[in-house]
Simulated scan of single mutants.
Amino acid sequence: MGLNQAEEATLDELSARIDDLRSARSRTVVAVSGYGGAGKSTLSKALVARGGSRARLRGDDFLDPVRSHQRSTDWDGVDRARLRSEVLEPFRRGERVRFRPYDWHLGALGSITELPDVEVLVVDAIGILHPDLDGCFDLAVWVDVDLATAGTRGRRRDQVAGHDHDALWTDVWLPNDRDFAARFDPVGRADLRYVPEDVAGRE
């Protein structure tokens, strides 16, 4: 399904779709992806805040601190194999999920973390609408912000947080997003599109 065909959904509609899926199965996994800076975390937090036995898994927990700062055409810095084997597959089987998130201060895997016992897991990350994770998601949502706008938002967010990542955005993250989109068409893998309120109607 391509960008022009994927249905656009509001936050209420996304939440309702998740509830529909949840009523049909014991465990539901939702992917929220988009370009860096698009607003993936914000949307995921809003969906989890709607309640109904939901939890969020941060994409940063599966980003390698070194490789995620290097150029690649497949977002090699996202540890998709570990995400699938340690979290997504056991969660879907109804098992207790324990994993080691990356510790950004250590630059290595951190302490073991246990996922809450919930029915819906919302995973927000770059690079997850990829063949390596086919079959892992019951619903895939693309945060529909164009690459240039997403990059501007991401830079502004980092500056507010006191991080000087301008060179990384220019030399690594934006080119990685561009190349990943060209290779794997993550927009076409999405079931629904979501446009953040602060960018809606700008086109």
Rank of each mutant, 00 (worst) to 15 (best):
G2A: 13
G2E: 15
Q5K: 15
E8H: 09
A9Q: 04
E13L: 11
I18E: 08
D20P: 02
R22Q: 15
S33I: 03
S33R: 05
G34S: 08
G36P: 08
A38G: 09
A38R: 05
G39F: 06
S41Y: 05
S44R: 06
A49M: 02
R50L: 11
G51K: 03
G52L: 13
G52D: 11
G52H: 11
S53N: 10
R54Y: 13
R54I: 09
R54G: 06
A55P: 06
R56Y: 04
L57H: 12
G59D: 01
D61K: 10
F62T: 00
P65Y: 00
Q70M: 13
Q70W: 00
R71I: 12
S72H: 11
D74L: 01
D76T: 13
D76H: 14
R82H: 05
R82Y: 01
S85Q: 14
P90M: 11
F91N: 06
F91Y: 13
R93H: 14
G94F: 04
E95R: 14
R96L: 11
R96H: 10
V97R: 12
V97D: 03
R100P: 01
P101D: 03
P101E: 04
Y102E: 00
A108T: 00
G110Y: 03
G110D: 01
G110R: 01
I112Y: 10
P116F: 09
D117V: 01
E119D: 15
V120D: 04
L121A: 06
D124V: 03
I126E: 06
G127F: 05
P131N: 04
D132E: 15
D132G: 04
L133Q: 09
G135L: 07
F137V: 00
D138H: 15
L139Q: 09
A140Y: 02
V141F: 08
V141Q: 08
V143F: 11
D144F: 10
A148H: 11
A148W: 11
T149M: 09
T149G: 05
A150K: 05
G151H: 01
R153I: 02
R153D: 04
R156N: 15
R156G: 13
Q159V: 13
V160C: 05
A161C: 10
D164W: 07
D166T: 14
W169H: 07
W169V: 02
T170W: 08
T170Q: 15
W173T: 00
L174D: 09
D179T: 07
D179P: 04
F180G: 02
F180N: 09
A181Q: 13
F184N: 05
D191C: 10
D191F: 11
R193Y: 09
R193T: 01
Y194Q: 11
P196N: 03
G201H: 07
G201C: 07
R202N: 07
